[in-house]
Structures are given as C-alpha cells and as structure tokens.
Design a binder for these strands. Sequence first.
DNA 1: TCCCTGACTGTATGCGTATGCAGGAGCCGC
DNA 2: GCGGCTCCTGCATACGCATACAGTCAGGGA
Lengths: 333, 333
Amino acid sequence: MVTSHDVARLAGVSQPTVSRALRDSPNVSAETKERVRRAARSLGYVISDSGRALASGRTRRVGLLVTDLENQFYPYVIAAMHRQLEALDHQLILHTEDRDGENVTERLFSHGLDGVLLATTTSDSALPVRLRDRGVPFVYFNRTSAVEADSATVDAAAGLGEVAGALADRGHRRVAAIFGPRNTSTGEEREEALREALEHHGIGLPRALTHRGPFDVETGHAGMQRFLALAEPPTAVVCSNDVVAIGAVNAAHEAGLAIPEQVSVVGFDDLPPARWPVFSLTTVAYDLTAMAQAAARLLIERIEAGDRPGTYRHEVFPTRLVHRRTLAAAPMS
Amino acid sequence: MVTSHDVARLAGVSQPTVSRALRDSPNVSAETKERVRRAARSLGYVISDSGRALASGRTRRVGLLVTDLENQFYPYVIAAMHRQLEALDHQLILHTEDRDGENVTERLFSHGLDGVLLATTTSDSALPVRLRDRGVPFVYFNRTSAVEADSATVDAAAGLGEVAGALADRGHRRVAAIFGPRNTSTGEEREEALREALEHHGIGLPRALTHRGPFDVETGHAGMQRFLALAEPPTAVVCSNDVVAIGAVNAAHEAGLAIPEQVSVVGFDDLPPARWPVFSLTTVAYDLTAMAQAAARLLIERIEAGDRPGTYRHEVFPTRLVHRRTLAAAPMS
DNA sequence: TCCCTGACTGTATGCGTATGCAGGAGCCGC
DNA sequence: GCGGCTCCTGCATACGCATACAGTCAGGGA
C-alpha cells in the first residue's frame, strides 16, 4: 500500500507537505502542489481513511438510522442521501435499530460516525437526548422529536388540505383514514392535519373509520380489510403514506372491489411505484429526493459548523396533490 | 472520548492487556479479562474503529457494488447482507458505479474496504481483474464473470425448466421472453436456459417475441408494449426477473389486457411485491435472503482465510416455480 | 547593509489500537 | 532445589495522516 510518505519521497518533500498539498492548503506553493499531485497520481496514491480519521478525529462517515430496510420508502431515500453524501465526500452507514433500541448508541459510536441522520425516530425515543448529550450532530429526516435539531420535513397540512378539498368536492362523506403510529411526529402531524382539514369540510372521522399502524404494506392491507367488512364501508380511504396505500389497494383488489369506482384511495409521498399503472395512485407529492439530500446537506453543514445550539434550521418541503386514478366521485349509495 | 488507556488505568493493567482482554485473547487470565470488561463497561468504553483499522490493517468494512440503488431488487438484498454482516461484526458500504465505471476502484480503496460484494458485475467489466490484481477479496452475488471467485448464485435452469413445462402443459405455443442484458451472466444464463427448456417442449422463441434490456421496470413495460402491438401477440411472457415482470404487468394493465386470461406473465426472484395481490405473480422462487447472506458470509470467510487461489466456493441456490395468478391456460385463438 | 516580515516547508508529535518481544512468576520433574 | 517450561503481562513500537511549532529563505523597507 502506497502512503503519503512514498509520495513525499517521490516528490522530494516531507510527508506533512504531501498532506497539505493534497488537501489544497493555502500555505503550499502552487508548484509544490503540482509536483505532489503528480507524484501521487503516478504512484496511484489513495489516502487512508483510517489514518485520516485517526489523525483528524473525523471519519467522514454518517449513519442513517432506519428501522426497516425492506420498507419500500427507504430505497429512494437512501439513494438520494447516498448521492448527496458522495458529492460531499462522505459515506453513508446504514443502521437498523434493534427491537429494544438498546445498544444502538453504543454501536453507533463504536463505528465512529461524525453524525447521524434520524429517519425513523419515535417521539418517545431516548436517542436524540443521548446524541445531544454526547454532542453528536444529528438531523431529523421526515420526523422530529422534542429534542430540537436541524430537520428536513414535509408540509403535510397543505397537501392534506388539498386532499380534504378534493374529497369533499367529489361528494365523499364517509371517509376513512389509516394513520401512522401515535409515537411518530409524522403520524401525529398527518392525523391532526387530516382531521382538521376534513372537519373544515364538515366531514368527521368516527373511530370505526380509523385505523392505525406502522407505515407499511400490512397496515394498509389490514386497515382496508377492516373498512370493507363494515356494514357501511367508506367511499374513500386516506392513507398515511404510499406504502400503506399500496397495501390498501391490494386489499381492495383482493376483495374484488373496483378502485376508484367503489372506493377511492389517496396516498402520501408519491413514490415511484405510485406512478405504476396498476396503482396509479392519487397522492400527496413532494420532492423526496431533494428532501433526503437536504437532510444530508444539513448534517454535513452542522458537522462542519460545530455545535451551535439555538441555530437550528428546518427545511420544510411543499406538497401538492397529484391526481391520478384512485380518486373519483363518491359512488351513489 | 474514553480510550483503552482509560480502561487500562481503571483496571490496573496495561493498554495492550485491555486490547487483548476485550478481544478474548487466549493469553489473558480469566480474572483479568473480567476486570477489564467491568472497567470497560463502567466507563462506557467503545473501541475506536479508526484506531483498530489503522493498527490491524482491517477496516471490518466491505463494499456492495450496485448500479442502481432504486431498483426494487436491492432493498431485500441489502437488508439481508446488512443483517449478516452485522452478525459478523462488519459494516456494509454502498457503492454505486459511475456510468463509466472509471474511478470505482480508486474510491473503493480510498475507503479502505476489506472486500467487495459484486452484485451487478457485467461480464466485460474490468473491475474483477483489477480487484484480483490488487489482491482485494471479492465475491459475486447473483452474477459472475470470467475472473473466478467465490459466488452465490441461483440455479436458473431448474426453475426455468419448470416454467417451460408449465407453459407447455397449459397449451402455450406463442411464448415471448424479456431477457436481461447480454453482458451479464445472469441475463445470458437465463436466456440460454429458457430457450433450451422451451425448445425441449417444441416451443421456439422467434426474434419478434423477444425483448432485451436492463433488469428494471421500464424494460418490462417496453417489452410488453411491443409484444402487445404485434399482429399476433404472445399468450405468455417470461420475464428475466420480477422487477421486469412488474413492468410487464403494468403495461398489460395499462393496455386493458386481463392477466392471465389474455396473457400470462412469469417472473423470477419471488420478491415480496410478487406476493402482493395486485400482482400475485407466478414466479421462480429461491431463498434470496439466504443467498445474500451466503455472499456476505463467503466474503468474510475469504477475507479471514486470506488469498488462496484455486479454492473458490460456489453456492448455488435451488429454485422452484411458485404458482400464483399470472399463469393460466393459453386463451383459445 | 541590516532587520523584519511573510511565505513556505520541515520536525516533532499525537490520534487509539494491535502485536512482536522480553520479562517475571509460578510450576513441574528430576 | 534447580533448570526449564508455561502462562501471563508489560514495553516498545508501528499503522498513516494531521497539525502545532520551529525553521529557512527571499524580499523589502529603512
């Protein structure tokens, strides 16, 4: 393995000069830089991550904390963050939380992360507190908790306001909702926004027309099944996100119900599968990629700025309802 | 940050003893180990990845090389590998190849990887050669190339043999196929296996009933569209994998064609979405999770065994056709 | 001409862990 | 009771890079 010493020898300079030259330090003459760069290139020198990390105290690695890697939502998030971080010369380390969430922190730090992206924080999680106490920079993605930090989130209220309007316009009165978990800011926020928006159009959400569960396909499936078993099923189902909506569509399909003729379905996120013809999901859209990249960017900036409490940045992404084919007029009853 | 020196001080031993004790070295007495462990726990000591990497020359990090993180196939692969590697105390680093595949190697090594999992190697890629020449351990997952190495792959011939039989049994004579790229072992192997198996049942694959493209949704969509525009469309379409099949189903759906009444579709992989009621895809199944974990395991074992040319292991996973609802008797013409 | 300044570069050292080697303590057998 | 052995532990050092600090050299002002 070729080291900075080898480069130094070839370039006729000292090792520290190599270090400085390659990082484009201002106190290295242009000609020396050039000589060093040539030497490095001709030797095929690549800096040692470990050496740099040990000396600088920065690993240039950040963690992404996610509960379920198989959830259809994350590939897009991971891909976007990965690209952004690569551009900023950082690496993304995936971390799945244990069931108990016990030794997450420990494992987090044993891996020497410069910071953490929290994508599935629950509002009762102790992790943000621990991170703050240990001075580890972190950023919320799509979720927040009581501990303040930089965040990239979505303006759910706007999108769900549109949803409620669209439903009302089309004569829906019996509307059901599948909510996310109570202990997530995303779940709570969307629930509150939807209730309020529907209320505004005089549409209530009785308990029987409400289902709650994790943001996954099974939740949507189970919720829709429950609704369809009702004596008076809803004419529309609003889902906490697209993955849930996919589950709901599946259940309707399984039950032989026509969408949107017999029941309308609305999602949230506008994931690529929402555009697949078999779903063609009417859904609340926003720029998920930009949001993921914003979270990554905020984290790196936070890392480089150092701890500066009270100056948190919250990027909120606008939403809009995308009309496809799962929302239609309420059927005559 | 608490270091092994701190632990040593508290435990009343030297730093190297801490290192040995925590790694359960045989030449440390049981009582010393216990004392060190207690000290470490009470201080909340976590080993420094960078320190260990620098000193040991092993980063305990392996790369997964993938072209397209958004492809529906990979989340399951990544999740399985991640779990397996976590159990083996290693980390997974995602790497997406550039278009040109140019500086992949460089970036690979700058990040100090102990080994690489190749999941999207093309048979004409120079990467395996470069890895071999630089002595970097690597394992093929789902694909291989001319450079021999450990591998975890699928017994495509068996599954596709079953597919051909099932098609013949149901009276399909006009069968179309959507193949993977020519420069992938997976694509070639499945093409050859399918052609041969169909041939065996007296079914030919004329050029018009053949489409080729990357293993993605768009390929399936485009292929099916092409087939459906034919004067005499096929009664069944065999797809190179489930993601492609999803695209095909979408196109059929879009065209208003009933599956399987008007056209049958068969996939490969049995991804979770294949089980979704909207698809309910008849597909060639195998244990994808086990295969991903095998690849990870093979890599770690290879890393620990050191270079030992000529002793490569090839784990081939058995397949079987899973009957769901996209394969039925050929329609009367 | 001399001193001072600024621009570079080299020297020394530290980051946290792993490991080769030496040394000490205890034990066995003769 | 002594040599030699095993078992355990400490000492010294290396891994590759970054950085504080010291040093050098050229140039400019007085």
